[in-house]
Design a protein around this nucleic acid. Structure first.
Length: 869
RNA sequence: GGGCGGGUGGCGGAACCUGGUAGACGCGCUGGACUUAGGAUCCAGUGGUGAUGAGCCGUGCGGGUUCAAAUCCCGCCCCGCCCACCA
């Protein structure tokens, strides 16, 4: 084999790894375990190099940890339920199961062609009954403990997907999948009580010291804990009370109105007796019909309706008007607020809009506020004014005193409020886990008994995506008998959000084929927690929060011995690529289809159909923009190893990066040069170099000594870089070493003994270092020198400290901090002598210009600086 | 409005943690060699300004600390992302 033809060797090695079941692992108490996990993909199409960044990073780390001697669990599966598959199936007329099967097939071959070292014996598909039955089991366990419940509530509804969505699935008021504006619907739905775990989910964030700070901050904000007081307003002349929550009880004397969310069930009751009832109802309906943008944008003008009733201020007895206002949210707190325009910006804006009074009760120390003219609410602490017995106090103390008073008088009580809401898991779609309950006319909600699990998804069904829950249209599924009384009953026809599936799959990987239980706790406790988890930032509050929640629940069941699933988390950046939009044809063009011409030294890119210039933009790789680069293309053109190296070399893995077709050339040339170097020096290699090196290494000088120093610097650098996730600089170090290695080949004598031993050490070490990054070529080159099997089973090299020490050192000579010369002296050179030599440098003398040296600073082995005035 | 990143050659990025040779590595570009040919390979060069050498300038802007600042501190500008009527 003369030329480097990756396609020829890569298939061969992939086959060997597979035959030898190299990546298959089992529990081994004698070895330290390392559980590396990639976020598993949706099988909704094919994978592109942007997705592959995640898996390649994981493969480097897994292979590296294997070589370091760890028992590495590196599994992969498919998050196979869900809307993408269902929608694609509808679109192309497939059954989702078949569609998913096709995608999985394709994706599997893509993982394989890049040489990713998964233990495929542990593969999971969430759409398989032996997986989703445990979703149902988990649900029932939660139901038993009151953590799963069904309740009518205003929920997010995507009119396009015709299903409800969790709060975490609504992005900027739109459906995360299709971008349709989400509306609120009042529906009876299944929830999991995440709020019961709010405090623990918050507290335990402090343990996650190896998580990116921003993910922890996002979760903290999402949980949104705040301390305040909940108290009630009586309604004047009615037997109703309005509870409100506030974090600013110190401003309570400034209340000039009370406001209710338009959805608040109290609203109809309050207006029932008004003579203007009709008119008020219409007003409230208008508020309810506002679009999410009108409702939630801060710029939007606030709107409201006076409900024609008054509330009694519990401390002052004063009558204040009750309004319904669009800026009050039903989902947070009590769905009603005390409004203090002087000290809350939103209330102020509303008050100005409707000419409501503004009453100042806190003033800045030494300052004053004019309630008539103020346009900014005063929200800082200050001195209490017009606040009854609390006048004159500082506002933080007053807050405590007022809370005490309210608790004493039983008007209100201190309360901790969370922004986090319960997790809505019902979906009105087909392709998901059936929720395992039935509805009996006599017994009500009856959970499906454990021994009746799984509730199977009916296979034969026509899915249209329209007309409500698809399962409700399958009579043989819906109609059943009650497990309790034997009477007629109907099955729940909603399915679970796929986020349920993915909130515990990492546990199932530890024991994927268990037919008796969700998992064997012993196996889970061996492998878990996941030591390193890698995936996209988009899961910061959804999946990562749900997984923490389910883990804590299983801990409480006594099934597992840990409370946090993921010790280390790394979020990788997206891969961008040029996309070409033809404004005339109004379509995207594939990069390989556009016509590139050079005119006057400038490249002009035109549409292949209409010849007009195309608009070039940088976008995330995506099917719709036709700008994906597939593993197939890369493997066919350059080979998997080049593709892997390039995606790692492209930039820091946590940052977004741009795929450039010319950039791939670099890693390819690197591998080609390595190939040629090893090939043309095969005869230099001595297989017993390990035995011969110890007695020889102390005698080395010149090129041999330099090469060893560079080699072991590289070992050190690459090792540290992998540990720190600096894969880009790790690859750069390998390239740098190859450059030095080539110089060495030219300088050294190929027949000489020492040179051959040093060569052998270098080439052997280099390909070991290369293995996690480019495993195929590394294993191939290893075999050329008589290496047996794959390098993944070989030890990772260790840096030889002796080799790192240099004999000579370049010292920088500065005058007043500016570099004026560089001199080379032996390491540890006498400081006085160094000074003397430095002063003799012509350029240094020129800059000293006869002035007196007032100070000399020497940084050992680095620098000497003369300070003159 | 709040939070988090980031600003370094023609480009992607090193060096920032721990102040001490700015521009590693790669792409691109320029010149050369070998060639029927080169989009292969090899050699040389490549921050700006100097004919060359020396020098001078140079890490978004303005200050500061220091013998010495891309790096630390203060103030500002710009870009990106995320969150946001959460009472």
């Amino acid at each position: 084999m003369e030329r480097y033809e990756p396609q020829a060797i890569e298939k061969k090695w992939q086959q060997r790894w597979k035959n030898e079941e190299l990546f298959k692992v089992t529990e081994d108490p004698c070895r330290s375990k390392f559980y590396y996990l990639d976020m598993f993909p949706y099988p909704s199409g094919e994978l592109h190099m942007g997705h592959m960044r995640n898996y390649i990073i994981g493969d480097v780390l897994s292979r590296y940890m294997r070589m370091k001697g760890f028992n590495v669990l590196h599994p992969m599966g498919y998050d196979a339920f869900g809307l993408p598959a269902e929608n694609a199936a509808i679109q192309y007329g497939y059954h989702p199961r078949d569609w998913v099967e096709q995608c999985i097939c394709r994706m599997r071959s893509q993982f394989d062609m890049l040489g990713i070292s998964y233990d495929w014996s542990r593969e999971i598909r969430t759409c398989a009954p032996d997986y989703y039955r445990w979703n149902q089991w988990l649900f029932l366990k939660m139901y038993e403990r009151g953590l799963a419940y069904r309740q009518p509530a205003p929920v997010n509804w995507c009119p396009n997907c015709e299903t409800t969505l969790a709060d975490e699935e609504v992005v900027d008021g739109r459906c995360w999948r299709c971008g349709t504006l989400v509306i609120k619907k009042w529906l009876e739905q299944w929830f999991l009580r995440t709020t019961a775990y709010a405090e623990r989910l918050l507290q335990d964030l402090d343990q996650l010291v190896h998580w990116p700070e921003r993910v922890r901050i996002m979760q903290r904000n999402w949980i949104g804990k705040s301390h305040g007081v909940e108290f009630t307003f009586a309604v004047d002349g009615m037997d109703e009370t309005i509870p409100v929550f506030t974090t600013r009880i110190d401003t309570v004397y400034g209340v000039t109105f009370v406001a209710l969310a338009p959805e608040n069930p109290l609203v109809p009751k309050l207006i029932a007796r008004s003579p203007r009832r009709r008119e008020l109802e219409e007003g409230v309906t208008r508020l309810l019909q506002e679009s999410p943008e009108e409702r939630t944008s801060e710029e939007a003008q606030k709107r409201g309706v006076f409900l024609d009733v008054f509330a009694i201020h519990p401390l002052t007895g004063e009558r204040v008007p009750i309004w319904s206002a669009d800026y009050v949210l039903m989902e947070y707190g009590t769905g009603a607020i005390m409004a203090v325009p002087a000290h809350d910006q939103r209330d102020l804006e509303f008050a100005r809009q409707y000419n409501l009074p503004v009453r100042v009760v806190i003033i800045p120390p030494g300052g004053s506020l004019d309630p008539e003219s103020m346009t900014q609410a005063y929200v800082e602490p200050g001195i209490m004014v017009n606040a009854g017995p609390f006048t004159g106090m500082d506002s933080p103390s007053a807050a405590e005193a007022i809370a005490d008073l309210m608790e004493q008088k039983a008007i209100g009580r201190r309360k901790v409020q969370y922004r986090l809401r319960d997790w809505l898991i019902s979906r009105q779609r087909y392709w998901g886990t059936p929720i395992p309950v039935i509805y009996c006319d006599r017994c009500g909600i009856v959970p499906v008994p454990d021994d009746q699990l799984p509730v199977l998804l009916p296979a034969h069904i026509r899915i249209t995506g329209k007309g409500g829950a698809p399962l409700s249209q399958v009579p043989e599924f819906v109609n059943t008998t009650c497990y309790s009384c034997g009477g007629t009953a109907k099955r729940e026809t909603d399915t679970m959000s796929t986020f349920v599936d993915s909130s515990w799959y990492f546990l199932r990987f530890c024991d994927p084929q268990n037919a008796e239980d969700i998992f064997d706790p012993e196996k889970v406790n061996y492998w878990m927690p996941v030591d390193q988890y890698v995936g996209g930032i988009e899961h910061a509050v959804g999946h990562l929060m749900y997984s923490r929640f389910i883990t804590k629940f299983l801990y409480d069941l006594g099934l597992i011995g840990f409370q946090e699933p993921f010790v280390r988390l790394f979020t990788q950046g997206m891969i961008y690529h040029e996309s070409y939009w033809c404004p005339r044809c109004r379509v995207y063009r594939r990069p390989r289809d556009v016509v590139r011409k050079t005119e006057d030294g400038k490249t002009v890119v035109t549409c292949p159909v209409c010849q007009s210039p195309v608009a070039i933009t940088l976008d995330k790789m995506s099917k719709s923009k036709l700008n994906v680069v597939t593993p197939e293309e890369i493997c066919a053109g350059y080979g998997a190893d080049t593709g892997r190296l390039f995606i790692l070399f492209i930039g820091p893995p946590e940052q977004d990066a741009e795929w450039t077709s010319s950039g791939v050339e670099g890693p390819f040339r690197f591998l080609t040069r390595l190939w040629r170097l090893v090939l043309s020096n095969k005869d230099r290699f001595v297989s017993d170099w390990r035995e011969r090196l110890p007695s020889l290494k102390i005698l080395l000088s010149g090129p041999e000594r330099d090469l060893r120093r560079r080699l072991h610097q590289t070992v050190k650098a690459v090792t540290e870089d992998i540990n720190d996730f600096h894969f880009n600089t790790a690859v750069a170090s390998l390239m740098e070493f190859l450059n030095s290695f080539q110089d060495f080949i030219e300088e050294s004598d190929r027949k000489e003994e020492r040179s051959r031993v040093v060569y052998s050490e270098a080439v052997d070490t280099l390909i070991r270092l290369l293995h996690p990054f480019a495993p195929h070529i590394a294993d191939e080159l290893f075999s050329w020198h008589g290496g047996q099997g794959s390098l993944i089973c070989q030890p990772w090299p260790e840096a030889d400290m002796d080799a790192l020490e240099a004999e000579m050192q370049t010292i920088v000579v500065q005058v007043n901090g500016k570099v004026r010369a560089r001199i080379t002296v032996p390491v540890g050179y006498d400081e006085e002598k160094l000074k003397e030599r430095a002063l003799q440098e012509p350029n240094v003398r020129a800059h000293l210009g006869g002035k007196t040296v007032v100070r000399t600073i020497i940084v050992p082995n680095k620098l000497i600086n003369f300070v003159v005035n």
